[in-house]
């Protein structure tokens, strides 16, 4: 018998603290497998955000730094300046990257920082209990939009990938999802390419991964995947927004 699937050495043995059906775990796996397959785990330095994935530093089997809310791209810039040959990635949620950290991500991209950004967008603040995020859909009910997000008072969702693709400094921007086996396999390819870009000194890459939050969406894990496919994707279409060859 040949093992065709087992947990990657790019992750530690620590059990994930994520809620049942939360897709952070899938994304963690894709990032860790990419680092191992590209043979750069020993050179990797990850930056964990504030939010549900703050404990990413306990899961990725490499050196890690924990950044203050939204500032992971600035921390990653500091790391990359000191160690230009290291492989630096940030792992950020939408509250972290699209809300409080919108300036830091924008300028890291504009500077063309040679880093890889893993942006997990689940349209809500998860860790704090399900508040409205900049990515929350119109009409989506959260604890701070109890009647659904109203554009008159709450504005509209932010499409970070589309925005960052406009900057000359960005190299590769793609939005993917993880709702089925095909999508997961494609997400892996995109994430791996984002790291390859860094290895080849191509500059700033960001993969936005649409993700679920069954707990705060108030849905079963399976219904969450369906909601992501049907509702989230119409606001956040999948695809490559920028690729400098």
């Amino acid at each position: 018998m040949k093992t065709v699937f087992e947990k990657t050495k790019g992750l530690t043995d620590k059990t994930f603290h994520y809620c049942p059906g939360c897709t952070h775990g899938i994304v963690h796996r894709l990032v860790a497998e990419s680092l191992v397959e590209l043979n750069v785990l020993d050179k990797a330095i990850g930056v964990a955000p504030v939010g549900c994935s703050v404990f990413a530093y306990e899961y990725f089997n490499c050196d890690m730094q924990q950044a203050s809310h939204g500032r992971a791209p600035a921390v990653a810039t500091g790391i990359k300046r000191v160690l230009p040959d290291s492989i630096v990635f940030t792992y950020q949620g939408d509250g972290d990257l699209a809300s409080i950290g919108s300036a830091e991500i924008m300028h890291a991209a504009a500077r063309g920082e040679n880093i890889t950004v893993i942006y997990v967008n689940n349209a809500i603040f998860g860790m704090t209990g399900g508040q409205m995020a900049p990515t929350t859909l119109i009409g989506q009910v959260t604890t701070t939009s109890p009647n659904g997000r109203d554009p008159l008072t709450d504005g509209y969702p932010i499409n970070m990938s589309e925005m960052l693709a406009q900057l000359i400094g960005s190299t590769y921007i793609e939005r993917v999802s993880i709702t089925n086996v095909k999508n997961v396999k494609h997400a892996k390819k995109a994430i791996k390419k984002a790291f390859e870009n860094q290895i080849n000194n191509k500059g700033f890459s960001m993969i936005e991964i649409l993700s679920t939050c069954p707990t705060n969406w108030g849905m079963t894990p399976l219904d969450s995947l369906k909601w992501l496919d049907e509702k989230m994707q119409s606001v956040f279409p999948l695809g490559v927004f920028k690729e400098v060859k």
């Binding site: 040949k2 065709v4 059990t15 997961v184």
Partner: peptide, 21 residues
């Protein structure tokens, strides 16, 4: 059939899949 679909989707990485060769 050792397709690995279950492990691909498992968010907690608790599944190991093996195949007869």
């Amino acid at each position: 059939i050792s397709c690995g679909f279950c492990a691909t989707m498992c968010p907690d990485l608790i599944i190991t899949v093996r195949k007869e060769v």
